[in-house]
């Protein structure tokens, strides 16, 4: 299988406490992968290592076959701006700017002309059904609306990979549904890879598959439902 982003044996400790103890991970282009697991298991740390925000102590991260974890901070930061998008639990919109200006910002930083950037921003707000909020500031919209604006901003540069950490963590069921429905629809139509950290199974169910992190390690893919794995004791294999 042709993987777009891979991690091999990634280790990361904070002081003496290991957060990741040798994690392997791979995602194909256009895949939507949920990264789940108990609190403190290392999900965010894994996401940050994959996105080049945090440098692993050992192991490697590759994007399209190119190693990215041992490059300079400047290089990784350029990579994040040009090929990655990020979305966090609280969208971190700039409070002084309107929704449209927030969404246009990554394009302006990339040197796109103002008029084009604003047009693109409006298009993206439209795709997330919040075009009517273009002129509002983050303080004037609901949490769910702000998160859709943040999602539009994360995707406006048409990144190859979107890294999302608990994007629905602060939202109720219906607001989560709106964010996730739009996000996965848009990502799938553009073949954007989405790596989605969540502790909510209802959010994880929007993904194509799930990777479970427990205690800083990733379990192998579980055997098909209903067929006990090779490790299951013989006594359980014939359970009716």
């Amino acid at each position: 299988m042709n993987h777009q982003i891979t991690a091999r044996g990634v280790v990361k400790s904070y002081g003496n406490s290991p957060a990741l103890r040798g994690v392997d991970f791979a995602a194909a282009r256009g895949e939507v992968v949920a990264i789940t697991g108990p609190s403190g298991s290392g999900k965010s740390t894994l996401l940050h290592c994959l996105a080049g925000i945090v440098r692993p102590d050992a192991g490697s991260v590759h994007l399209d076959g190119q190693r990215i974890d041992d490059t300079s901070e400047a290089h990784r930061s350029r990579l994040r701006r040009s090929r990655f998008g990020v979305l966090f639990q609280f969208g971190h919109l700039v409070p002084e700017l309107t929704a449209a200006e927030n969404v246009a910002m990554p394009l302006l930083l990339a040197g796109v002309r103002r008029r084009e950037a604003v047009t693109a921003a409006r298009n993206w707000l439209e795709r997330f059904d919040v075009a009517d909020l273009a002129g509002k500031r983050p303080g004037e919209v609901s949490g769910g609306q702000a998160q859709r604006v943040a999602a539009a901003r994360a995707l406006v540069t048409e990144p190859e990979v979107l890294f999302a950490d608990e994007p629905t963590g602060a939202l109720d069921t219906l607001a989560s549904e709106q964010v996730m429905t739009q996000l996965t629809r848009v990502a799938r139509s553009a073949a954007t890879t989405v790596l989605l950290v969540t502790h909510d199974a209802r959010t994880a169910a929007y993904a194509d598959r799930e990777v479970v992190v427990r205690d800083g390690t990733v379990q192998g893919p579980p055997p098909l439902a209903g067929t006990p794995g090779p490790g299951a004791p013989a006594a359980l294999r014939s359970t009716p």
Partner: peptide, 26 residues
């Protein structure tokens, strides 16, 4: 019948089966 690891193994597989069903409903 087989100890804690067997129970954990079962729970992991049950979790995967539940989530697969949730993907279908989603």
């Amino acid at each position: 019948i087989a100890g804690g690891d067997a129970a954990r193994d079962y729970l992991h597989r049950q979790r995967a089966a539940h989530l697969e069903r949730m993907r279908v409903y989603t």
